[in-house]
């Protein structure tokens, strides 16, 4: 099994963090994993994406040309990565910020709206991760939660709580 994901959006949407949570959970699942950020001179507001590969075998290139899964968090990223998905690949689109029309094997969720509803716009990324978990059974919810607990700042328990809520909402879509 090798799962190649590209996660894309704009700087500030927690794109890197989404990838890191997934990578950390893959580590806890005893998988091989790589996480590669696209880094540029710009950060907040600019384009941001990261590439995550999860595998049962040693991973060669951490760079992904054609992805098994695309998680797209805004319109610009949809235009940029629409051709980077394998023929049968899964595409998850944040329909709060991207208009996808009718794309084959694309599923959508209003992740940003969900996040606003929970009182913290920043957790849209975890809602998207929840939807991914519901559709691909590669990493268990248990290990994702474990990874989130490990990574969350200990002095702000309310942050972990709202992130977990967003994850659950995403899974229920």
């Amino acid at each position: 099994m090798t799962e190649r994901l590209i996660i894309a959006g704009s700087g500030g949407q927690g794109i890197m963090l989404l990838g890191k949570v997934l990578a950390e959970a893959a580590l806890l699942s005893n998988k091989f994993v790589t996480w590669l950020p696209a880094y540029g001179p710009e950060v907040r507001g600019g384009a941001a994406h990261c590439m995550v590969i999860i595998s049962d075998d040693e991973i060669g290139s951490p760079y992904i040309d054609q992805a098994d899964t695309l998680i797209i968090m805004n319109q610009l990223s949809l235009a940029k990565f629409i051709n980077r998905r394998k023929d049968n690949g899964l595409m998850i689109i944040n329909s709060s910020l991207a208009e996808s029309g009718k794309l084959a094997k694309a599923i959508t969720g209003k992740f940003t709206d969900i996040a606003i509803g929970l009182g913290n716009i920043k957790v849209a990324n975890m809602a998207a991760l929840g939807m991914y978990l519901a559709h691909k059974k590669i990493i268990s919810l248990k290990n994702i939660e474990k990874a989130m607990r490990k990574m969350a700042p200990k002095d702000k328990p309310e942050l972990l709580k709202v992130n977990l809520e967003a994850l659950k909402k995403g899974m229920e879509i």
């Binding site: 890191k20 990578a23 994993v33 790589t34 996480w35 950020p37 880094y39 951490p62």
Partner: peptide
Amino acid sequence: GMLGQMMEP
């Protein structure tokens, strides 16, 4: 730069 920036266990 690729090796420096990427994460791996």
